[in-house]
Design a protein around this nucleic acid. Sequence first.
RNA 1: GCGGAUGUGGCGUAAUUGGUAGCCGCGCCAGACUUAGGAUCUGGUUCCGUAAGGAGUAUGGGUUCGAGUCCCUUCAUCCGCACCA
Length: 1040
Amino acid sequence: MEYNFEEIEKKWQEYWRENKTYHVDIDHDKPKFYVLDMFPYPSGAGLHVGHPLGYIASDIYARYKRLKGFNVLHPMGYDAYGLPAEQYAIQTGTHPAITTEKNINRYREQMDKIGFCYDWDREVRTSDPHYYKWTQWTFIQLFNSYYCNKCKKAQPISQLVDYLSKQGTEGLDVACTKPLSFTAKEWNAMSEKEQQETLMNYRLAYLADTMVNWCPELGTVLANDEVQDGLSVRGGYPVIRKSMKQWLLRITAYAERLLQGLETLDWTESIKDVQRNWIGKSMGASVFFKVADKDIDFEVFTTRADTLFGVTFMVLAPEHEMIDQLTTDEQREEVVKYVTWAKNRSERERMSEVKKVSGVFTGSYAVNPFNGTRIPIWISDYVLMGYGTGAIMAVPAHDSRDFAFARHFNLPIIQVVAKPGEEPSDPATWTESFDAKEGVLVNSEFLNGLTVKKAILRMIEELEKLGIGKGKTNYRLRDAIFSRQRYWGEPFPIYYKDGMPYAMDESKLPLELPSIDAYKPTETGEPPLARAKNWVTEEGYPIETNTMPGFAGSSGYYLRYEDPHNDKEYFSREANDYWQNVDLYIGGAEHATGHLIYSRFWCKFLYDIGLSCKDEPFQKMVNQGMIQGRSSFAYRVNLEKMCEYDVWNIIKDKRLGVEFVRGFKDGRRQFDFFCPEKGILIEINRMGNLEKVAGAWQEYATSKGYKLLLVPNIDVLNDYRDGTNIVEQKIKDLIAGKEVPTFVDGMEYQRGIIFVSKNVKDRELFSDPIHVDINLVRNDILDIDACRKWRDDLHNAHFIKEKDKDGNDIFVCDWMVEKMSKSKFNVQNPDDLVLKYGADTLRLYEMFLGPLEQSKPWDTQGIEGTFRFLKKFWKLYTEVSDEPATKEELKVLHKLIKKEEEDIERISFNTVVSAFMICVNELTDMKCNKREILEPLAIMISPYAPHIAEELWHQMGHNDSVVNQKFPEFDASHVVENTFTYPVSFNGKKRFDIELPLDMKQDEVQNAVVNAPEAQKWLEGVTIRKVIFIPKKIINIVVG
RNA sequence: GCGGAUGUGGCGUAAUUGGUAGCCGCGCCAGACUUAGGAUCUGGUUCCGUAAGGAGUAUGGGUUCGAGUCCCUUCAUCCGCACCA
């Protein structure tokens, strides 16, 4: 019987659906395992072969764990809110829900064909009110919480209100936007509105005026990770900085926990590094500097308190609030000019002109607290308001940016750190700063002689003693902007009373997204929700018109899968106690600073309020690499270049008896070829171009006494096609002194693209590669007929072919690895492959391609190999016998059991496919058809190729699903050997093999090897110095 | 500039702890069968060399009886971050 994958796959997909094979429930008799794929956004383009890579890997892992006795949670759903559907809505008026639904159905259809073991009963969609009810609910909890720095967790805001009413801000240590200071009396005297305003300083979800990334084109605000190089990641539209009232999440409160938590996670170092970098913790000191002749001071943040004696100027960011106070009257005009200029620069300009030094002097001086030196205070945009205090102490000797600034404005440079063992030198002679992370302090009074590390500590000590500074930790992480001026997102459960926001009562949830007439912002620039009718509470208070960003719904989705139909709570205690967090999370690495950090924050908050039993969402994560496309190119002839090339081949090297030169120039005139001896000028070009210049050039030629030959490209091409050699004949006639018409109209030129095969000689001199559809190419050989039909403009294309070794004409294409994309005609669609080879082949091949984490090109041909393997596998089961298996057969099986277990556990899926192939090759050679081998083998391949496994399992007489079996136990006794074939090396170079019993002792082994006939040749004339014998590994004889 | 990753046949890769470099597959070569195919099967396939043999895991060096693997140097490619004080 043939391997009919089409029938088999359809049959079992239906069976699994009908029998709810993949439905899971809490089962306290089994350990749980949670395998999750990153939440997909259902884009309109559907899946290409790169998308299912991670899904197949997680599916294999999930199925494997199930065979190993785990109760495996493996759900799938959709991150259904997103910009593309909304952009489409704006353009066409189609409700984004309709577009999204359509895309989801397409995704689902594609996924179903691949045979995943998702429990679809648990599917969630972020745009479903049953789901976003809990997104809104979580937002309310964030709104009603603050972060206590002492107990290091979120607390109810009511507790803070209580505290403030009793003690004011005295002794308060909580996360806030700005440190405030007031007494209990003052607090109690505040109006309700004032109190609400004050609380905004502490809430974990708060409303504030912020500089945001505003994208006018998209009409919305974007998060930092949604902007790249001043352009929106989605769409590539310009982004400007703008101040707007926005909802923010106080993620900065969790900076330290987000950083520390990384240590407990089994993620790649590179992703952890990206997150560490994003959080950007730096430990240093905050120092207050007094301003000379004024009774004010200002604060700077530095990580290098040790270099305080090297400070020769101060720099403030142009947005610094004290600029006005610090600017002297003489400097005012210039300062205002500079600040205005700096503030109006776009983020893009500022970033692209990083190297340009600009700045202005305020006229004021700060005072060095230790030696009283007056330090000029400058303003420059190389200092950012958003980091630290927006003011720095500049140490030009040891900071490259300060150095550049000092040199530009001629400010002094003082060296305070010397390289260990080196004398300080004159900074005036330096060409760059010495960014000394290690070294010994000099010119620094009480710090002299200390190492950098010790000096920092000592300086902080001194600062604290004087009460003008203290050790401080700074984070680069910013609070997450949580408002979007869009329609297609979760509405905020917030209404406004007296201009102050209030959270709705939880009983009002979900607050459903209203329908509106158009999806654009209003004429007055308000978000689309402002178009909704009656967008007010029952009491008539207006409801927030912003919606939540994409990461709102995707931050806690993995928890909802644990209890997706719960109407009463986000998820039940019971479900969460059982399923806990995700054990294995598979997805791309591109979410490192977005989803993966927001989810961790979300989780930690839910942990703090006692909802999630774990404070990290994804215990182990694997980031699959990208699948790249293998594009095919045909070389397209550049007519000009080719014709010149052809003619040159006729005349070069005195082939026609006279010398020609290429590229002859006379003044502004330039000709392709020139023969000085006979005075012949030759120019090759398009007919049209030749006609234009013919008159003038003829005149020039006549005046010089030259003969002119203008050759239309077409003549050269005709020579090429029919070998008439008219061009050659013309040139010969000219040389012979005959009269030749300057140019003769050639035949009618049929416009058509000319292609040239890859290995045609000198092809690179006259052709350029263009993409051709990979479906037209097989083994790099182009199907010319198909290519002609592919595009209208190729109907009459001409192909210059080459010969293969049998003398057949073929057209060879070149290839290149690049991104898989429609425009490159290199997209492989999983549906097509499933149709042609079946899902099992596709699954195996995607894994076989290489290590999951690595990026690799998709080889269109390679899939045939795995297809052949499955056919070979199928054949093993043709007639299953009940005879007992032989020792060798058992050994083959158990080798595979061990290999598969070990490799799946270490996420090495590609090597398992190889191992299957080796096993099947060996069993085929042995003609093995024993049930004792084939039954466990069917179970073992089921994670990879579930359909064929299920079919064969049933064919062998079983009525239950292969999915519910147990993974076979490895029995080491089947693989023990009593002999080993040792490689014998001389001086580390392997010379021959020798089979020896494993229990042989060193001296016996030595004897056997030295006396082996193959060894004699290598022992001749040398002495044995040493014999290395490693049992079961190698024998190495050192001779000399 | 900083940080991370990767570099092995024509191609994708394998070699799990320092122990036979190139498993498995694609492609290619030869053969068998054939209704002469983009089917199937068998054998071969790192490079140089007829061979014996030699060379060989980006580069140069080191440690070791032994290095793709460990250490140092340089180069290339990819990714992330970037006036972050």
